[in-house]
Amino acid sequence: MLLFSKSKSRTVHHYHDEREKDSTGDGGDEAASTSLTVWTKSLVFSCTGFTVIASDGALAYRVDNYTGRPGQTVLMDGSGNPIFTIRRRKKLGLLDYWLVYEGEVCKYSNKEKIKPVFCVRKNISLRQTKVDDVVAYVYCGMSEKRCMYVIKGSFTHRSCKILDESARVVADIKKKEAMPEGASFGLEVFHLIIKPGFHCRFAMAIVLLLDQMYS
């Protein structure tokens, strides 16, 4: 396994530091996981996107897209401050991959100066029939030499796990249970459960990537 440069290593572990506290208020609490409720709707009229609610009922994250399937998506906090910019790219052939930048990056930004923090590649294997199959790989920066995380399961069925290099589950995507009265939430509302030590913002960015890959 190849080693990262010191600068890249610090950037990567910024999102996987047990001492770091998340904007949701309990992302750094080692006693319990953080549970977010994700709704695949924007609160802004005529927009598509996501609304993410923390366990205390506060607005944690949001995505407001003014076009149906944008080539670029910005993840914001509850106040509308940009956290990550996600861009879809296609290499030669049929291989799709996505670049994740810190903050808001417009399409006219200098690509030589602004480098992506993560690269996520969709698994195009024909063996995506088992529940535990890999659906995507997460790499540092533009390099695909070292896989930091893998995502397994089925985002279509809202049943996914994010695993680190030691195969430890750091986050789960799960269906939201039906109401006692029998009303079902369907696929529009689901849970994102983040284990202690894994950054909530990065977990939510992965949800956006999976939605673009498999919805």
Rank of each mutant, 00 (worst) to 15 (best):
Y149I: 05
K90Y: 03
L94T: 00
I83V: 05
T51A: 06
R88D: 08
I173G: 02
V189T: 09
M76V: 04
L2R: 12
G197H: 13
T85N: 06
K113H: 13
E104Y: 05
K111R: 00
V105G: 07
R201I: 09
H13Y: 05
C106F: 06
Y137K: 14
C147H: 10
F4L: 15
V189S: 14
A54D: 15
L2S: 15
L95F: 08
N110H: 15
L92S: 01
I162K: 05
H199Q: 11
Y108H: 08
K41Q: 14
L43F: 13
D56S: 06
I194F: 01
D96V: 10
R121Y: 02
I86N: 02
M213T: 00
V131S: 12
M204H: 03
L163G: 05
R146D: 12
G103Q: 02
N81W: 07
C200E: 15
H13P: 08
I173Q: 01
W98A: 13
Y15K: 07
V131P: 02
S42V: 00
G25A: 13
L163V: 06
T51F: 06
L75P: 08
S35V: 15
Y214R: 06
N65R: 12
K21N: 04
K174A: 05
Y97F: 15
S55Y: 09
R201E: 07
V207T: 02
L126K: 09
C147E: 06
E177R: 12
I194T: 13
L163E: 14
L92T: 06
C106N: 04
D26R: 05
V169W: 07
I124F: 04
L126A: 03
E177N: 11
D133H: 15
N81L: 05
V12Y: 10
G78T: 05
E188D: 14
T37I: 07
K90W: 05
K122T: 05
I162A: 04
E144A: 09
Y15V: 03
S79N: 01
D77L: 14
D172F: 08
V134R: 13
M1G: 12
L3H: 11
M142C: 07
P82L: 07
E102S: 07
Y15M: 13
I194G: 06
Y61L: 03
N123G: 10
E102A: 04
R168G: 11
P196S: 13
S166A: 12
V105M: 07
R127W: 10
L187G: 00
R146K: 09
V135E: 04
D172M: 01
V63D: 12
E112L: 04
S9G: 10
D26S: 09
G186Q: 14
T129Y: 11
S55L: 03
M76T: 02
L163N: 09
K111N: 03
R89I: 02
Y61E: 00
V38M: 01
E144R: 00
R127V: 09
Y61R: 08
Y214C: 08
R158G: 02
R89Q: 10
A136M: 12
